[in-house]
Nucleic acid binder design. Structure first.
Length: 535
DNA sequence: GGCGGAAAGC
DNA sequence: GCTTTCCGCC
């Protein structure tokens, strides 16, 4: 019966699933690897076998009912090695979640609580498929089904996992896959679809712009240093029709172009615009975007490139991410951006003038070899965000999908609190919207990218400009050649000869670029020229 | 049943 | 920092 208590909840190897540390820390518990109650609750909710003990409330987004408080407490107690655990204590723990906005109480309903997935899961698992109860099994209810896929840390120790049973008499070893399989066994009717869209929108809508300082914010801040993402159980899991992710965002191409979210979600800009995720590789966001609008995708990617450029991020930064997270982006990365990375990231040798000007920044100049760690450290600190009780927002069913895209815009622009830069969910990864550089500021005003994280950057413009600027530099160098002092002219001449060398280097650079980005870079020549000229 | 303060434990 | 434990209060 008693399976023992695990201290390290994190499944290691044996479980077959590996999760990022922050997945165990959840919203905020640095250093704590103990499973958290809400994780536990979710896991129980995820499992069919506990439906009699705890279950999602029909028709209520994220709401669940503890049908057997004592049993839940017992399970929790066993999980935590607290035999004295009872519902009173457990409920106290749950009440602590109120302030964190992880949970709130459904008033008037006994033993009924409601998850705030907006802050709890959505930010971390935007691809999670949230479905209203009834449409899916216990394991994939109003909760992000990702809980199935994501497979919250096993209720018990890895060893117990290995044994396949953690709870008395129950086949808790049921794999997440099995759980997921159940999903497809149930049909989603039209009304549910409505609910879905509504729920999703509500979730999405509330997620970013109104994300209170609560969980989401704190959590993400804390996860800042963590590598995000491995929300996907196994790299081997590709297209899983039962997965909430549909196609797992694995390095497969298919994942990019076909990520069925939820029946109601489809791949609307809404969903992704509203779900900036720290744990979400921009690749996925972009992939989804790309899916519905290649042009916008392009812009988005360009913006990414800009981010990289602005912060001297190296493409090498990306490989640091779990392989199955980053790769998706690459195949779709527009050549323009591809090229930008190696060049911009490897700032050309500066002339004395530039050297002097940039001297102050020298410490921050990073060679591609050094870049990996940089990421978002230069991003402005998160500013205060509006705090609003998200649960109060009940979108009308009509305003939903049709206006979702529009709402994206509005919310992005109207709600100052949701500046991508401020979005804590971005803190953790490379593609945080950079502090708007001067040259992008202008474009930001004129563009209204549907992607929050690109909001202030007009990628196309910026990208063009990058290229253009270099071209101009090179051209102007030639034009002014004559006016140069003989000494300098000689130098230029010499540089011209060296250009061949540089070209070779460029070749290497491009190689790397291609390897890293998988695409070729048209901008390189101009930049290389500039490099040569400057040197 | 539910809430939340307080203190202690981990 | 999160949870447990205890407890008074509503």
């Amino acid at each position: 019966m008693k399976t023992g208590c695990s201290i390290g909840e994190k499944p290691k190897g044996g479980g077959g699933y590996h999760f990022p540390d922050w997945a165990y820390k959840a919203e905020s518990s640095p250093g704590s690897r103990q499973i958290q109650l809400w994780h536990f609750i979710l896991e129980l909710l995820q499992k069919e076998e506990f439906r009699h003990v705890i279950a999602w409330q029909q028709g209520e987004y994220g709401e669940f009912v503890i049908k057997d408080p004592d049993e839940v407490a017992r399970l929790w107690g066993r999980r935590k090695c607290k035999p004295q655990m009872n519902y009173d204590k457990l409920s106290r723990a749950l009440r602590y979640y109120y302030n964190k906005q992880i949970l709130h109480k459904t008033k008037g309903k006994r033993f009924t609580y409601k998850f705030n997935f907006n802050k709890l899961v959505m930010p971390n698992y935007p691809f999670i498929n949230i479905r209203p109860n009834g449409a899916v099994p216990q394991s994939a209810p109003p909760v992000p089904t990702a809980s199935s896929h994501f497979h919250f840390p096993p209720l018990d120790s890895p060893s117990e996992d290995a044994h396949g049973s953690r709870f008395s008499g129950n086949s808790t070893a049921q794999s997440s896959r099995e759980s997921l399989n159940e999903v497809t066994d149930r049909k989603t009717n039209a009304s549910e679809q409505d609910d879905l869209s509504s729920d999703w929108r509500r979730s999405a809508d509330l997620l970013a712009p109104r994300n209170p300082m609560g969980l989401g914010h704190r959590a993400l801040q804390k996860h800042k240093s963590d590598l995000m993402l491995p929300v996907f159980p196994m790299p081997g899991m590709y297209a899983d029709p039962h997965s909430p992710f549909g196609l797992s965002p694995l390095p497969g191409r298919g994942s990019l172009l076909n990520i069925p979210i939820s029946p109601a979600l489809s791949l609307t800009p809404t969903v992704f615009s509203y779900s900036p995720s720290p744990g979400l590789s921009p690749a996925f966001q972009s992939s989804s975007c790309f899916n519905f609008n290649p042009e916008e995708m392009k812009h988005y990617l360009q913006a990414q490139a800009c981010s990289v450029l602005n912060y001297h991020l190296s493409p090498r930064t990306f490989p640091r991410y779990p392989g199955f997270m980053m790769p998706p982006r690459q195949p779709h990365f527009p050549p323009e951006e591809q090229s930008s990375f190696p060049i911009k990231l490897q700032p050309p040798p500066m002339g004395r003038k530039n050297r002097e000007r940039d001297q102050s920044q020298d410490e921050e100049q990073i060679t591609p070899q050094q870049t990996p760690v940089v990421t978002t450290m230069k991003v402005e600190p998160i500013s205060a965000m509006k705090v609003e009780p998200i649960s109060d927002y009940e979108p009308t069913s009509d305003e939903d999908l049709d206006s979702s895209a529009e709402k994206d815009f509005h919310s992005d622009e109207e709600d100052d609190s949701f500046s991508p830069r401020e979005d804590p969910t971005r803190q953790g990864h490379t593609f945080i919207k950079p502090a708007t550089p001067s040259w992008t500021a202008v474009s930001s005003a004129s563009s209204r990218p549907p992607y929050p994280n690109v909001a202030t950057v007009d990628p196309s413009e910026s990208s063009d400009r990058v290229t253009k600027d270099y071209s101009v530099d090179a051209a102007s160098v030639e034009k002014k050649e004559d006016s140069l002092p003989p000494k300098l002219r000689l130098k230029r001449l010499w540089n011209g000869e060296r250009q061949t060398e540089v070209a070779e280097d460029r070749g290497e650079c491009r190689k790397v670029s291609c390897i890293v980005n998988g695409l070729r870079s048209p901008v390189i020549p101009a930049e290389t020229k500039a490099v040569a000229a400057d040197s």
